[in-house]
Nucleic acid binder design. Structure first.
Lengths: 148, 148
DNA sequence: ATTATTGCAAACTATTTGCAAGTGA
DNA sequence: TCACTTGCAAATAGTTTGCAATAAT
């Protein structure tokens, strides 16, 4: 398969910052390009170990942090405090619908900040966070048998 | 000053669950009643040490967790992953405008889920998170001198 | 008197750092 | 070649747990 746009973007971001493209970093880029949802550092580590049994956890961390500082990965803390990464959608502003079971995410364009008025307190607004959590169709069907 | 409603609610919640009211727990209730914004475990610990120089960190943790399990404290992870607590607003659904500097929070009633349609993917929606981050008026003025 | 709560110490998890050896540009 | 990157090991931060002493009911 041809290298995807997103994967190229990630690699380009690194070279543009004078960073070197190691096999591991190339693999990282591929993992995030091929994943729909969020990945924890441990998830990434485990995927990395398949092609590189010798990778160390700290290298994975370092690279995740680096990519998130470059802005090509998006880093969020889930509701339970768990750190997760996902490749950034650089192209437009949107929000996410996240499956609490498999963490697959879908984007949607509606933003509650559009036309937002009447906020109290005269704040200077910096940013916002809007996420909807639920069960995706697959997970819902899967879990149906064990539900009460 | 007369004991506030909120403080009573917290204490009542504990007695109703067969838990004992220690001086520390009474103080915890007071701290959260008197605080507008979010408090980290460390913040709470430091406030607790004023009246009880001998408190231990783990007792603070245990009690925070207990109160959050009872539902009288609301626990969230901030954008940077830091755990914070705040007394629950039991009375109605709303969202928060949070000062990123002092973490004071204001509530507002608008909820983006009202009338939300057109979500992709046929999820079963479980919950949502909507927070607006900014600088409150005070912090904005304070910081004005050192701004670029 | 009984049993929950506390403080201490230690365990545990997640994340970060220093450094010598390895590797990409 | 040169300096960035890696793996190892150890450090750090945040949170949790076991247990004997203490205190609430």
């Amino acid at each position: 398969m041809v290298q995807k746009q997103q994967e190229q973007d990630m690699i380009r971001a690194m070279t543009h910052h004078g960073l070197r493209i190691t096999d591991q970093r190339r693999t990282l880029a591929k993992i995030f390009t091929e994943t729909e949802g969020y990945l924890s550092p441990k998830d990434v580590y485990e995927q990395m170990r398949i092609p590189y049994p010798g990778v160390s956890f700290d290298t994975v961390y370092r690279n995740l942090r680096m990519l998130s500082e470059l802005g090509v990965l998006e880093q969020i803390y889930f509701q339970d405090g768990g750190l997760k990464f996902k490749s950034t959608c650089l192209h437009h502003h949107h929000h996410h619908l996240i499956c609490v079971n498999c963490e697959k995410t879908l984007t949607f364009d509606y933003c509650p900040m559009d036309g937002m008025l009447n906020l109290p307190g005269n704040f200077k607004i910096i940013n916002h966070r809007f996420e909807i959590y639920g069960l995706c169709e697959e997970c819902r069907l899967e879990g149906a048998s064990s539900e009460s």
